[in-house]
């Protein structure tokens, strides 16, 4: 598990071309070399902007999980949904016999 965290020295984390290509590949987004090249400074700018938050001293403050203090609501264990196959399949590029049909994937 690689956590995205600033290095201990407080040095700004930077993204290189290889990282951009790897993230693109993990996300199944096809990018050309030129696009990837252009994204390196863009992503670094975004990270740099977010990293300004690191300037604030948050020692002893619990991480906030939401803006409004709230707890997770739970649903009851009752079947209230489903039987909407047509809606579920409506946007499928290809559907057959009630299934999504996708290019054959076998490992």
């Amino acid at each position: 598990m690689k956590q995205v965290e600033p290095s201990a020295s407080g040095e700004a984390m930077s993204i290189d071309l290889q990282t951009v290509k790897k993230i693109a590949s993990l996300s199944r987004i096809s990018v050309t070399d030129a696009e990837a090249q252009a994204m390196v400074p863009e992503l670094n700018n975004i990270l740099g902007w977010v990293e300004q938050l690191g300037e604030v001293d948050v020692t002893g403050i619990e991480p906030m999980t939401a803006v409004i203090p709230n707890v997770q609501r739970l649903r009851e264990d009752v079947v209230t949904d489903g039987n909407v196959r047509e809606l579920v399949l409506a946007n499928a590029p290809q559907a057959e016999h009630g299934f999504f049909a996708v290019p054959k994937v076998i490992e």
Binding site: R75, D77, V78, V79, T80, D81, G82, N83, V84, R85, L87, V88, L89, H97, G98, F99, F100
Partner: peptide, 25 residues
């Protein structure tokens, strides 16, 4: 073992017709 799914109200029963126990979630 539950009637509905972890995050939606669709049923969990085994052996139903394909994609009939599916919510938009």
């Amino acid at each position: 073992t539950s009637n509905a799914k972890l995050f939606s109200g669709a049923a969990t029963a085994f052996g139903a017709e394909p994609n009939t126990q599916v919510s938009l979630v």
